Computed example of a mutant assay.
Amino acid sequence: MIAISSRPPADALYLDKVHDVAFTPDVIYGVGGIGYVAGQGPARYRDLKLDVYRPVGDGNVPRPALILAFGGAFHRGTKGVEVFEGENPSTAMAEYCREFARRGYVCFSIDYRLMQEAPDPGVTPFLLPGQPQNTDRIDFVRNILGLPPCTSQMMADTLEAATDDMTKAINFVRNRSQAYGVDVTRIACGGFSAGAAIALNAAFAERAPVAAVVALSGRIAGPTMDFHLTDGAIAPAALVFHGERDLPVILDGISEMRVHFDRVGVANQFVNVAGADHFYQRDATVLRADGSACDVETMIAEFLHDRLHLANAVKAAA
């Protein structure tokens, strides 16, 4: 583990929640093809949208940005809500956005294409030809929705499309950094479950220009890391959470990710949420590297404060 260097002071800027929040819904950040048929292309395109959470009355410009994607096994959830009947609740990415905007971040909760839409996988593949796809969780959710099991190709197409959408959102924020008051050197992305997977793939496989990734119960596959994330690669820092009783596909990938990140020199921190399954709230108790307790949200704030070099940002603005 290459962990955060130290715990920042409690009153550090971008840690305290001191701002009111301005909310702007349904900003179009791009378009994506749906109704895709191999050899024929998409049947049509739809708008891709994000919600913006901005601190009110913050004179520190430019500010760090956080771009987050919801979870739901690539079938459920929205950029506003992530509550699934019959399963434990987890904190919605929209709620994380609001709480980090209170700290001074400009935050973006994004929409992305789901499997039911038959999304166009695009022309910039990051998956290897024939790369195996684990569909256990996907098929569990498809059964709940009354859908037949998916194929490996459906999974690959959806993962490619959704990852492209995250990359588009990152580029959208960078291209409009002046309008949003964003520092392009201090952008982080992340998400929960499927949203965490596309954030990891965008950052490490598609090389989207971010400085840090926050993954809540998500993983990046071994073959993807082996091909794209090699020794000496310039890569963002990663904070990866997992429940103690998380899904097998997540738990099976945690050790592989940790070993790979350490081997190639990716700054990382892996955090076990004791007693939790795949779902946990932002106030769930976790342990820092020094053994002291805090909650999930606080650990994210401290990690980003360190890895986005926010103490330096404050000094530069002074």
Rank of each mutant, 00 (worst) to 15 (best):
A3H: 04
S5C: 11
S5K: 06
P8K: 12
P9H: 14
D11T: 13
L13K: 14
K17E: 08
V18Q: 12
H19F: 11
V21E: 06
F23A: 01
I28L: 04
G30A: 11
Y36A: 08
G41D: 05
G41P: 02
P42C: 03
Y45S: 05
L50I: 03
L50R: 15
R54C: 09
R54Y: 15
R63Q: 10
P64F: 03
P64T: 15
P64Y: 03
L68A: 14
A69W: 00
F70Y: 10
E85R: 13
E87T: 15
E87H: 12
S90M: 11
A94H: 02
E99W: 03
A101V: 02
A101D: 01
R113V: 04
L114T: 09
Q116G: 05
E117N: 07
A118Y: 13
D120W: 09
G122P: 01
T124F: 10
F126G: 08
F126P: 12
L128Y: 06
G130S: 06
N134T: 10
D136P: 00
D136W: 11
I138W: 12
L147C: 01
P149A: 02
T151K: 03
M154H: 07
T158M: 02
D164A: 15
T167A: 13
T167C: 10
A169D: 10
A169W: 15
R174V: 09
R176L: 12
D183R: 15
R186G: 01
R186S: 02
I187H: 06
C189P: 00
P209N: 13
A215N: 07
I234S: 11
P236N: 13
A238R: 09
L239P: 12
F241P: 00
R245D: 07
D252Y: 03
I254D: 11
S255Q: 05
R258F: 04
D262V: 08
V266S: 10
N268R: 05
N272I: 15
A274V: 14
A274Q: 08
D277S: 12
Y280T: 01
S292Q: 13
C294R: 01
V296W: 00
T298S: 05
M299D: 11
A301C: 00
E302V: 02
L304I: 04
D306W: 00
V314Q: 09
A316V: 12
